[in-house]
Amino acid sequence: MRSLPVKATDVIKTGMAKNNSSSAATILEIQRLSTEDGPGIRTTIFFKGCPLRCTWCQNPESISIRPQLQWTETACIGCGTCIDVCPENALTSGAEGITIDRHLCTSCEMCSRECPSAAMKMLGRAWNLEELIAEAIKDRVYFEKSGGGITLSGGDPAMQANFAALLLKSLKEEGIHTALDTSGQCAQDVLGALLPHVDMVLYDIKEIDPDRHREFTGVSNEKILDNLVYLCRYMETHETPADLWIRTPVIPGATAYEENIRGIGRFIASRLGNSVSRWELCSFNNLCSSKYERLDMDWPFKDRPLMSRECMENFAGCARGSGVDPDIVHWSGPTKMEVGNK
């Protein structure tokens, strides 16, 4: 199979393409009954397009801002319709099933429209504001009962900031609690335009060392940290956002070392004042490796084992000892299974 390995160093000729439209956005997925993206029961809207190229990315299908074609073997009935209808002859059938020649494919969507079994599928599609709001607020009653709401995530909603701002504003007008999950890699005024309509922010600090940050994500963390400080100043002078959760992916061979965790902690303690109400360490997860396969992407982490529980406890200990209020430190995510030691 043809593969397009993701290298952080090829930054980011295509990825920086933003969508400035305020009338439509490319949305990957709307996930209901989300319980991990902020308080209460939430509906999470995953925007496509991300300015970073984290080598460990858990959602590779959200990196590109464009819809992407995916073939799922277990759904395919082998009828060959897709091959017949492809005007670019980009699809072939072989022992491993359907192969997509991604250089020939123009994402014309002929195959995904005709596929009877939805095995050939475009990931992401354009949504206009009205239909997206109508879909996203269907769980309003669960938001109300749980203190939940709607989270804009991705990718990074800031890549489609005009639309995101309008969406957030409309949701606020509907009386819905809004959360923004952003990488922070954007111009300050872009972030500034979103914040008036946001009740809480979920923000990643992945790596405190700027060079290592560049090595693993394609960009330095300078702008991200500056924007974070700006965000906290903003919070001090405005009623909303009222909450800020920091998340740190703990990735073996990348971010998972004590000095990084301590460094992030020192940054939080010294630069962010009292704005941070939760700092969550998220352990490395390998569940996404099959997604890379379906997108014909190589993933350097595919054979990485999970972290051990002790290891995560240890990092959480580091975090608590780093100068932050220890009560804000949490960790989550899967760890290596230890039988009989729940």
Partner: peptide
């Protein structure tokens, strides 16, 4: 769902 990470069970590899 494994701590918030979702996947369609039948689309992931046998080992996982």
């Amino acid at each position: 769902r494994i701590t918030g990470y979702n996947a369609y069970f039948t689309t992931i590899g046998r080992e996982l």
